[in-house]
């Protein structure tokens, strides 16, 4: 088990390093950074001084090392636009996105897992067909469109929910519904397929041969094995939601990390973009490690892996 964790962490570290190189190159490719930092009206001396201060006259490799060292100390740079510390900006907006991701994921799982299990018990039934049709529909609807339709319905027509901002918990209802609708097809199909697979397995037949009641067979023997893949995908999906909530945050004007990144991109504020890419990627990698560990904890076959 210890070796397993170390191995997974080692792999995660390697991916983080690679991601940081990409984030670094991303900003390097935008042109002369000294000009970008100083602004177009900066004098030649000012630009030269910036170049020296930030080590922009060094080789790329040295620049990367210097940048990486600063990142490790928590210095993600300064916004071109507002001159604020990028880390502070991220820390302000990350909780909003995290709340959104957690609530939508919870909502999505609470609906899709029971639905998927019910579908799997009677594949081909009316309930199964309706759920599958909904999941096909869910996959086809752009999430921002769903968000706009919700705004039209609840915000404009019925006027029961606020259409933007983060003032109250009610502000999160529509964004969370939008993203829950987005993750519903994934988990429905996963839990349905997992359950169908498990229900046809030999050990379920063994459990039935013992004369156990149907409910015991389903809950004790089937559900746990069927849910295993859902756990790891849900963890990973959480990471996707962190980086992929841009459109929903922009539709509902939620001051999350997605909106921060989007406005930074529009203003060519690359230190912020770079930092968001890096932070989201590292969170994603860490979540992957968590998913692996969760899987190992739930599946004794992985636990005792040599």
């Amino acid at each position: 088990m210890g070796a397993y964790i170390i191995r997974k962490l080692g792999e995660a570290l390697a991916v983080c390093v690679a991601v940081s190189v990409i984030a670094f190159v991303l900003v390097q490719s935008t042109g002369d950074l000294a000009v970008a930092m100083g602004g177009l009206d900066a004098s030649a001396e000012e630009t030269a001084r910036l170049r020296e201060v930030y080590g922009l006259d060094q080789s790329l490799f040295q620049q990367y090392l210097g940048w990486a060292w600063r990142v490790l100390q928590g210095d993600l740079g300064t916004s071109y636009f507002s001159q604020e510390d990028v880390l502070t900006l991220i820390m302000e907006s990350l909780p909003v996105t995290a709340v959104l991701a957690v609530s939508s994921l919870t909502l999505g799982l609470l609906i899709s897992i029971p639905a998927g299990v019910l579908c799997a018990i009677k594949p081909g039934s009316r309930f199964d067909r309706v759920c599958l049709a909904l999941s096909v529909l869910g996959q086809a609807m752009p999430s921002y469109w769903v968000g706009l339709l919700l705004i039209l319905l609840f915000g404009v027509t019925l006027q029961v929910l606020p259409i933007s901002g983060t003032q109250s918990a009610a502000s999160f209802v529509m964004p969370a519904m939008t993203l829950a609708w987005f993750v519903f097809p994934v988990f429905l199909r996963l839990s349905r397929a997992g359950m169908i697979d498990v229900l046809s397995s030999d050990y379920i037949r063994t459990a039935r041969a013992k004369g156990l009641p149907r409910r015991t067979v389903l809950v004790k023997h089937a559900l746990r094995n069927a849910i295993l893949p859902v756990v790891s995908v849900a963890t990973v999906q959480f990471g996707f939601l962190l980086g992929g909530s841009i459109v929903v945050e922009s539709v509902f004007s939620l001051n999350g990390i997605g909106l921060l990144a989007w406005s930074a991109i529009q203003r060519a504020d690359y230190p912020v973009v770079q930092a968001v890419v890096l932070v989201v990627a590292i969170i994603f990698v860490l979540l992957n490690v968590v998913a692996d560990l969760l899987n190992a904890a739930l599946d004794p076959r992985l636990m005792s892996e040599q």
Binding site: E11, C16, G243, G244, A261, V277, A281, V285, N288
Partner: peptide, 22 residues
């Protein structure tokens, strides 16, 4: 596998937006 891990770790929509901007 390593390349795939990197690709999955990068937030794709964000990255696509940034590349398009650049």
């Amino acid at each position: 596998s390593f390349i795939i891990s990197i690709r999955l770790a990068l937030p794709s929509l964000l990255l696509a937006l940034a590349i398009l901007q650049i």
